[in-house]
Design a protein around this nucleic acid. Sequence first.
DNA 1: GTCTATAGGCTGATAGAC
DNA 2: GTCTATCAGCCTATAGAC
Lengths: 216, 216
Amino acid sequence: MRLRTRDARATRQALTEAATELFAAHGFAGTNVDRIARRARVNKAMINYHFGGKRGLYVAILLAKMSELAGRLQALLEPARPADDQLQDCIRVFSSVLSARPAIARIMIREVAAGGPNLDAEVLPHFLKIFSVVRGIVERGIEQGVFRRASPFLTHLTLVGGLVFFFVTEPMRQRLHRAGQLPAALPSTEEFVRHFQDLMASGLAPERPDSWRSRR
Amino acid sequence: MRLRTRDARATRQALTEAATELFAAHGFAGTNVDRIARRARVNKAMINYHFGGKRGLYVAILLAKMSELAGRLQALLEPARPADDQLQDCIRVFSSVLSARPAIARIMIREVAAGGPNLDAEVLPHFLKIFSVVRGIVERGIEQGVFRRASPFLTHLTLVGGLVFFFVTEPMRQRLHRAGQLPAALPSTEEFVRHFQDLMASGLAPERPDSWRSRR
DNA sequence: GTCTATAGGCTGATAGAC
DNA sequence: GTCTATCAGCCTATAGAC
């Protein structure tokens, strides 16, 4: 009896992991349950038994990943620290979560590109939570005088955009790299994180006090 | 005879336009040829006649859009101007092309998320051309002393990432806005472009000469 | 909880008339 | 070039045995 429960957990996890990779690579419609089950080494009827069907499995993945990401980012805000430090942490944690499972970014961007048809009342709040984290950091940074006055929402979009894009495009970069068609060195995640932290930090820094040409 | 040719052109264009929207919204696998044909008010057998099938139509769209985008960006480099001005132009032109047809960004990001299985020897060069435009601007900016030393490739990724992400997410922002679930004002394309130009400009500006704390 | 077998719907492609 | 009719394959979901 205990063993049965344990097996069920393992079955669910195997299905989740296999489906995450396949949904990321081929999209929801492009993935068939046969392949998910084969990859998970599980009978395909288990998808219906445990998740209520292909879409149920997909939504469960969406919910689990977004709630993990939002939770980890929100934890950043608890210790009161300078906003510019929190911004660095935000980029680092966001990257670390996406880096551990690049599939998340690819699934999310597909979902958003479709207009979010599966982002229901359960998943949507996690999206908004991530925005509120970034907004909080930006607004406090402006108050503290460490950031210039920039739109929190637009800053959120460029921040998340830069991060998500890097991880969404990673598989293709690696493919081109292997094929010898990438006209640049393959950047590591750490290099990217440092680059992006620097870019956002100086991009949001207060205007230079010294003379600076005012072109455009 | 002339009329026949004219009709064929119109048929191809109607199919291309309808398919562009549907591929963007639902992906390649999530779009069926019946819907494309119905939306284009064209018989579905025309897809096979004119494009050799669903995938042929998809690849034709990919090629046309990427070649247009790459061509318009490359035209920026012809007049020799300061690199920071060219960067502003690059962001403006890129946004203007994506803004006129947001579907392009969504199709491209889906394709890249899949690892680029349809980016063949014909389409790939246009991707690389876009990179070489950005790289050229960054490298010349560093030479000219208007940019700090930043990796051209990482700069390319963050630049394109921020732009593409904005347009990929636009339909969802509008949906949330209509549903009253967007916790911020809906930003216009012009606002975004200005925000992003400012962010990249100060993010790439040379290090401040005056005293600046060296934290991190 | 797991597995097999199968039903039932949908889809892309094409043959052939015009 | 365009249209209709149709086929053959694939895909999700489930009934029912264990």
